[in-house]
Amino acid sequence: MSDNAASPRALPWFVRPDARAWRCEPAPTDVRVFHSSLPDHAPTALTELPSLAEELGVGRVFVKDESCRLGLPAFKALGASWAVHRTLAERAANGEGQGPVTLVTATDGNHGRAVARMAHRLGQRAHVFVPQGVHPQAVAAIVAEQAEVTEVAGSYDEAVRVAAEAAAAPDAILVQDTGWAGYEQIPGWIVEGYSTLCAEIDEQLAADGVVDGPDLVSVPVGVGSLAQAVVTHYRSRPSERAPALLSVEPEAAPCVLESLTLGALVSVTTGETIMAGLNCGTPSSIAWPHLSGGLDAAVAVTDADSARAATDLAAAGVASGPCGAASLAGLRAVLTGVGAEERRRALGLGPSSVVVLLSTEGIAANPHAGADH
């Protein structure tokens, strides 16, 4: 059901009351073992922000700060590293040759840079396709990883299409973080890679005295891969205290919100937004069953909402780009304004609730690069 009570305009919002009862299989346990073996691996910070808890009327607010993950300014390296590792291992096991391959992907910045970093580290080539309008700093960062970069005249969805065509060449492999019919194994490995982030949150909360886990997790969403990982983590174990899960998108690209509202996976026409990494028109096919089953709520926010959230996080000591700050912008939109009490009740939040915000990127490489592709 949607909430149309807000004034002066309706909040783009969807809520479903039975999501916390939905269950799925867990991520494999060897993902975290693999990440721990990498030379530059370290858990990212979980930072408590009491001022936000007071503002939002909850007990405690924590921010998972992904501004430096495996030497890159976003969480994307978790998924890219695991997927490239699995892809090359499968290729070797199948006897498909010992020579170098070209890892092909489409990106607005962080995913492509992570794939390029892994390719270079492992002696492979990388070819990264970027949609029109990607920030020059993001392109330069990918080129610095020794990748070939091609700009596509069109949207992110068009860049994905062109990248998939290029990956049909001999000795080329598509490493894309969105799935569709016939292309789901590698995107599934990318999602598995993100499980490390969720496991860290559990341990860090427990060390801070929160032994029962969070009451709500707020996740920025593009195609939905990170949200799929979060749903998988929290909906794969029996728990009477399963948290509410909130997805946050730009109003310019609310493909998950629109799909949830209509009850089916649909594409939307995207507009311009500073949340470039969330500017996706179609949810991932492998993410959709998890999003439609396990998300409690979805909200869309404006660029102004995201920019304000980024400024406030910076003032509190958390460097976050517009995509990463969307998690705070979305929670603010839900917990304030007309209709807030009804939305708060729908999510089961009270004055002692514990909330985790996923800040999926820093701001060093590209102020407009992405949380979800």
Rank of each mutant, 00 (worst) to 15 (best):
N4M: 11
A77P: 03
L246G: 00
D296M: 04
L88C: 07
G317K: 02
I274D: 07
G277M: 03
T102L: 06
A333K: 15
W82V: 08
P254E: 14
S352Y: 09
A298Y: 09
V301R: 12
I363G: 00
Q124G: 01
V160K: 00
A264E: 15
P28C: 10
R23D: 08
P26Y: 06
L56N: 02
A300L: 13
D202Y: 09
I286P: 04
P351Y: 07
C280N: 12
C280G: 05
P283T: 08
V301S: 13
T87V: 06
C24S: 13
N110S: 03
W180T: 09
M1V: 10
L103N: 00
L245A: 01
V219D: 01
L291H: 06
A166T: 06
E25K: 08
R20E: 03
H373D: 05
A116G: 07
V268L: 08
G271N: 14
G324C: 06
G277I: 05
E258N: 09
C68A: 12
S155T: 15
G222D: 10
V223I: 10
R117S: 10
A6F: 03
V63G: 03
D296K: 01
T273R: 14
S51R: 15
T196S: 14
A27C: 11
T44V: 14
H85V: 04
T44F: 02
P187H: 10
V338F: 02
A329H: 08
E249N: 09
G123F: 08
A89E: 08
V33L: 12
T302F: 13
R121T: 08
A80S: 08
T44I: 11
G95M: 07
N366A: 14
V115K: 03
A169M: 11
D3L: 01
H135Y: 07
A364I: 11
P170Q: 12
A19Y: 04
R69H: 07
C255D: 15
A53S: 11
V160Y: 00
A309T: 11
G213K: 05
H135L: 10
Y156W: 06
A119S: 05
G57V: 05
V355R: 01
G112N: 04
R344T: 10
P12K: 04
A314G: 12
P254D: 14
Q146T: 08
A83S: 11
P322Y: 15
S327I: 07
G317N: 03
R121G: 06
I186Y: 02
A140W: 05
Y156G: 00
S247N: 09
L262H: 14
V334K: 04
E341L: 13
G154K: 05
V58R: 04
G123H: 08
